[in-house]
Design a protein around this nucleic acid. Structure first.
Lengths: 338, 338
DNA sequence: TTGTAAGCGTTATCAA
DNA sequence: TTGATAACGCTTACAA
């Protein structure tokens, strides 16, 4: 790690500026000189320093990706999409886990700023305006995913949660279910709220009266789904179907049903949201609403790059993907009352 | 992003060196001056540049984490462990996905070097000596996980794959199984080989003759497990138990069994390896061998830091974790032949 | 076409 | 205790 541009220049018998030019493809360089420089660089095993480069160019070639917890199966896919687009563009990504803790999040952002990231993608994380405002004030573009930050100047990429929830519930209704519960995720998140709203809209559409007892919430985890499931299944009359705030919750509800001696889908239909890998591998397969996570990650990174490069500088763009209902084995027609 | 140490110095009415001292806690500074500097920095919203700092200190405060595919459920846990230890130490981590492609891997490493990472953790990725040798030659410490790179100067953290496989197969044998197949992962990886060896050792121990037909391999995916499962179940006599190279393979084998009209565990017992989250959520729960992935990630990062800081500089350390058999629902006593 | 030199923002050495 | 000032490795006018 000791060979610098100066070494290359000396070896090639040229000035450092020339080396810089050929390595960056900027300005005119005689073909022969170019060859000589390239050869010298190769022989010396020269690896240019992005630290030095970033210092003068004021661009580090890095971006930050902030997620609550990479261990939650929904985030790796998004991460991968971001990574894909980033590496194609020659960018490298810093990964940060916040555990949804505002303090940790602030620390992470601070670190990212110290490293002079060219932009930050927040996914499924707290919607704190101040943090984002500061970033924007310093010309660090921000893209938000899986959360609806109502900020004039940040791009967001999300899925239409209302429509997705609605599609899920309509599916249940078409199967003859009328007593449909909602095992919701965090109601403090826009995502959680929207999915709840889609649920209510679908019921209303079908003239099914809304029963507040049928909606219980926790967070977006299996454990929470299990607990909420127990509550919901204790209702009387017992719901014949549950729309869950996400797949992990759905799996928890299913577990609660099993432990209560209920069969899914015979006694209870369940629909999730996200379509994580597990949804397809579990038996019976989980009926769910798919969001194209990897593609969404890729788009987020692409939009961020446009901002970084100044190719786009208008007001915040909202890209919302259409969700897609995937019917598998956890939903079935409601048997006429026996 | 424009306020520099000079601005802070001016504002506090001191020289830049003093600001640097208080910010880094190096050297003597009068308490009063310190306060003034801190205040100035806060008022200005000063964020020191790690690029500039790294340039002079020759330490970037970053490390690279190279995994095949973060989308594979085994890696997020390790990643999280690495992250945990990294952020505690004030380090930030670059994440790279190689898809096990040597070309991509080389590119990723190149990028990491350009960013002057202070060290790199490779997990479950190709065992290419040259790459590592170059890194080491330039004093960039390396830790390897989930692969056994027989390199004198790199630390490795792994689980005892032989012992784990052995424990899994012993469990099967104790349950009365004699015809046990192995749905192996990549045999080009040390991990795959070791698990196969543990399998053979367990058989030998129990005086069960080794039948090459009972061992088939592919890669470490669900799809591969499914295909391999089909092959294994076509054998005659049909195996009554399968030890899979990892959990994803195990799930694939189970799927193949189901499609063949076989019940797990009634007709076929299956054991996996890794204990990914899915193993506990699937029904019946997957019997498997646990490796403490998050903890392993944390240790890897800790060891890397020791090297970076020069707290340790001896020959490569090999830390191998003891595996732990977790018995769930996919294994059961072999019924006496009917 | 190519080289010289002035930064980029910090740290660290050396005087004061 | 503190302040100049010389690196750190690279890009980019500005000259030649």
């Amino acid at each position: 790690m000791k060979v610098t541009i100066r070494d290359v220049a000396r070896r090639a018998g040229v000035g450092v500026a020339t080396v810089s030019r050929v390595l960056n493809g900027t300005g005119y360089v005689k073909a022969e000189t170019r060859e000589r420089v390239l050869a010298a660089a190769a022989e010396l095993g020269y690896v240019p320093s992005q630290l030095a480069r970033g210092l003068v160019r004021r661009l580090s070639g890095t971006v930050g990706l902030v997620v609550p917890d990479i261990t939650n199966p929904f985030f790796p896919l998004i991460t991968r999409g971001v990574e894909d687009a980033a590496s194609e563009a020659g960018y490298t990504v810093f990964l940060c886990n916040t555990d949804n803790d505002p303090v940790l999040e602030a620390q992470d952002v601070r670190k990212l700023r110290e490293h002079r990231v060219d932009g930050i993608i927040f996914v499924g994380t707290t919607e704190r305006r101040e943090l984002v405002d500061q970033l924007l004030a310093d010309d660090i573009p921000v893209v938000v995913m899986d959360r609806q930050l109502e900020h004039a100047d940040v791009d967001t990429v999300t899925v239409d949660n209302v429509a997705g929830a609605q599609a899920a519930c309509r599916h249940l209704i078409e199967l003859g279910h009328r007593r449909i519960a909602h095992a919701a995720g965090h109601q403090s998140t826009r995502t959680g709220q929207d999915r709840c709203q889609g649920y209510r809209m679908a019921l209303e559409e079908a003239d099914i009266p809304y029963d507040p007892a049928c909606v219980t919430w926790g967070d977006f985890t299996f454990e929470s789904g299990f607990r909420v499931g127990q509550v919901l299944l204790g209702l009387s009359p017992r719901p014949t179907a549950v729309f869950a705030g996400n797949d992990l919750i759905a799996l928890g509800v299913i577990r609660a049903a099993e432990e209560a001696g209920l069969s899914v889908p015979d006694d209870l239909s369940v629909v999730g949201f996200d379509n994580i890998q597990m949804a397809a591998l579990v038996r019976p397969g989980l009926t769910t609403v798919r969001q194209p996570a990897r593609e969404m990650g890729r788009l987020a990174m692409t939009m961020l790059l446009e901002r970084i490069r100044g190719e786009f500088s208008g007001p915040g763009r909202r890209h919302v993907y259409p969700p897609e209902l995937i019917v598998r084995g956890t939903t079935r027609r409601r048997e006429p009352l026996g």
